[in-house]
Simulated assay, not measured.
Amino acid sequence: MKTKLNCPCGEYITGANEDELVEKTKAHLADKHPGHDYSRDEILFIAY
């Protein structure tokens, strides 16, 4: 299970599980990177 992700902007995002990680990543993207929307699969591809 992947629960960590490093955004290229330097933000470190963690979740208790993949669902939470995707939710937090999508919230970060909406807040800090408007217009950059990634699918669950794309987010999990760069997560570890």
Rank of each mutant, 00 (worst) to 15 (best):
residue 1 M to C: 09
residue 1 M to Q: 10
residue 1 M to F: 12
residue 2 K to Y: 01
residue 2 K to T: 04
residue 3 T to F: 09
residue 3 T to N: 03
residue 4 K to Q: 10
residue 4 K to Y: 08
residue 4 K to S: 10
residue 4 K to N: 14
residue 5 L to Y: 05
residue 5 L to G: 03
residue 5 L to A: 05
residue 5 L to D: 00
residue 5 L to C: 01
residue 6 N to M: 09
residue 6 N to K: 15
residue 8 P to Q: 13
residue 8 P to M: 13
residue 8 P to A: 06
residue 8 P to S: 11
residue 8 P to F: 09
residue 8 P to Y: 03
residue 8 P to T: 10
residue 9 C to R: 09
residue 9 C to G: 01
residue 10 G to S: 07
residue 11 E to D: 15
residue 12 Y to E: 13
residue 12 Y to H: 13
residue 12 Y to T: 15
residue 12 Y to R: 12
residue 12 Y to W: 06
residue 13 I to N: 07
residue 14 T to Q: 08
residue 14 T to I: 06
residue 14 T to V: 03
residue 14 T to Y: 02
residue 14 T to E: 04
residue 15 G to F: 11
residue 15 G to P: 11
residue 15 G to R: 13
residue 15 G to I: 11
residue 15 G to A: 00
residue 16 A to C: 13
residue 16 A to L: 08
residue 17 N to H: 15
residue 17 N to I: 11
residue 17 N to M: 12
residue 18 E to V: 11
residue 18 E to Q: 14
residue 18 E to P: 02
residue 18 E to F: 07
residue 18 E to R: 15
residue 19 D to R: 12
residue 19 D to E: 02
residue 20 E to N: 07
residue 21 L to E: 00
residue 21 L to D: 01
residue 21 L to G: 02
residue 22 V to E: 01
residue 22 V to Q: 04
residue 22 V to K: 02
residue 22 V to I: 14
residue 24 K to G: 01
residue 24 K to W: 11
residue 24 K to E: 08
residue 25 T to Y: 05
residue 25 T to I: 01
residue 25 T to G: 01
residue 25 T to L: 02
residue 26 K to D: 01
residue 27 A to G: 07
residue 27 A to F: 06
residue 27 A to Y: 08
residue 27 A to P: 00
residue 27 A to T: 10
residue 28 H to C: 03
residue 29 L to M: 14
residue 29 L to V: 05
residue 29 L to P: 02
residue 31 D to V: 13
residue 31 D to I: 06
residue 31 D to N: 11
residue 31 D to S: 01
residue 31 D to G: 14
residue 31 D to W: 12
residue 31 D to C: 10
residue 32 K to S: 11
residue 32 K to C: 07
residue 33 H to S: 02
residue 34 P to Q: 13
residue 35 G to Y: 10
residue 35 G to F: 04
residue 36 H to N: 11
residue 36 H to F: 14
residue 36 H to D: 10
residue 36 H to G: 07
residue 36 H to M: 15
residue 36 H to Q: 09
residue 37 D to K: 12
residue 37 D to R: 10
residue 37 D to Y: 12
residue 38 Y to W: 06
residue 38 Y to R: 13
residue 38 Y to M: 07
residue 38 Y to N: 03
residue 39 S to L: 04
residue 40 R to S: 11
residue 40 R to P: 00
residue 41 D to I: 12
residue 42 E to T: 12
residue 42 E to Y: 06
residue 42 E to G: 06
residue 42 E to V: 05
residue 42 E to S: 08
residue 43 I to G: 04
residue 43 I to C: 02
residue 43 I to V: 08
residue 43 I to R: 09
residue 44 L to F: 00
residue 44 L to Y: 05
residue 44 L to D: 04
residue 44 L to T: 07
residue 45 F to S: 09
residue 45 F to I: 01
residue 45 F to W: 07
residue 45 F to T: 15
residue 46 I to F: 12
residue 46 I to P: 08
residue 46 I to G: 00
residue 46 I to W: 08
residue 47 A to F: 15
residue 47 A to H: 04
residue 47 A to R: 08
residue 47 A to C: 01
residue 47 A to W: 03
residue 48 Y to H: 11
residue 48 Y to K: 01
